[in-house]
């Protein structure tokens, strides 16, 4: 019972972190049709910026400043890079973001070195939140869940309850009409791309100290967030949310199972399961769980 409860909580909190990571990616894709390969790099930048800010003025300011900085970089990238490349079609965009990911990684090497940096959980959030029978549940994981849920709610509110959200939604399906109505669609795109980057940056602030802040962190999460976006349905925020929780819980529970099949235990195969799920889903339901586009 204790084990089951702890694993469920672990699964949900990991799933929520995955959601923070993938929400920006799926938003950018749904609006601009750009599959941003550099998305995980923005996550890494968020962690490094938060490290830098927290060493001088503390973690709480970093929680606000780092995502804003990453968002600003995202906007610059959209304005001076992606917008020019956009003319040459989706392949060019894809290659552009692919190259960008390498550039960001090298820049991180140059500025912060190749080793991990000392980015720690702040003392106020370090310690057990509550105890389930005999297992402690860390405050920081609770905090992670809180931020993620707050993020989901605020994205949803912005998209459905604000003027800019309505313009964004309209620009998603009818860009020409929206432009004809006098809205600056390229600027909307810039904001969305920056916003997506900022969300990844926020995930970096939270994930960087929960795990390790080092130059390989972007490459480590890159594949799994693509799996989530594909499984959830390209461009569906709700889908990404469901897929994140599903994959988080699936990986967590698979680890606990010691049943073996042909000498390989399920626990051993746990990290491969999301990819298996993606392949199966692409075969049987190509648009993903909640997606609207085919293929």
């Amino acid at each position: 019972m204790e084990f089951l409860l702890v694993q469920t909580l672990n699964g949900i909190s990991y799933g929520l972190l995955l959601f923070m990571l993938s929400s920006g990616l799926t938003l950018v894709f749904s609006l601009m049709g750009v599959l941003n390969f550099a998305h995980a790099s923005f996550y890494m930048l968020g962690a490094y910026f938060a490290y830098q800010v927290s060493t001088t003025i503390g973690f709480w300011p970093a929680l606000a400043i780092a995502p804003v900085l990453v968002g600003a970089i995202g906007m610059l990238v959209e304005r001076w890079g992606l917008r020019t490349v956009h003319r040459y079609g989706h392949v060019a965009e894809l290659l552009f973001t692919f190259g960008l990911a390498y550039l960001i990684e090298e820049a991180v090497h140059l500025v912060w070195g190749r080793s991990s940096v000392e980015y720690r959980v702040p003392p106020d959030l370090d310690g057990p939140l509550f105890t389930i029978f005999t297992s402690q549940y860390p405050i920081y994981r609770g905090f992670m869940m809180l931020v993620s849920v707050a993020m989901l709610v605020s994205i949803w509110l912005v998209l459905t309850r604000t003027r800019i959200g309505l313009v964004i939604q309209a620009a998603l399906t009818h860009p020409q009409t929206v432009e004809a109505l006098g809205h600056n669609v390229p600027r909307v795109f810039m904001l969305v791309f920056g916003g997506g980057a900022a969300l990844a940056g926020l995930a970096g602030v939270i994930g960087g100290n929960a795990f390790v802040t080092e130059p390989g962190m972007a490459a480590a999460v890159g594949p799994i967030i693509f799996v989530i976006v594909v499984v959830g349905g390209m461009g569906s925020l709700a889908g990404a949310f469901i897929a994140s929780l599903l994959i988080g819980c699936m990986q967590t529970f698979a680890v606990s199972l010691d049943w073996s099949l042909a000498g390989i235990t399920i626990a051993q195969a746990a990290p491969v399961l999301p990819y298996l799920l993606m392949v199966l889903l692409l075969i049987f339901r190509p648009k993903g769980l909640m997606g609207t586009r085919e293929g």
Partner: peptide, 21 residues
């Protein structure tokens, strides 16, 4: 006795829960 894939696990808390149990 667990074997996990090298360099692919970012969240070890499920393994830790297992060790604890």
């Amino acid at each position: 006795d667990d074997l996990h894939p090298i360099g692919k696990v970012s969240d070890f808390s499920p393994y830790v829960a297992k060790i604890k149990a």
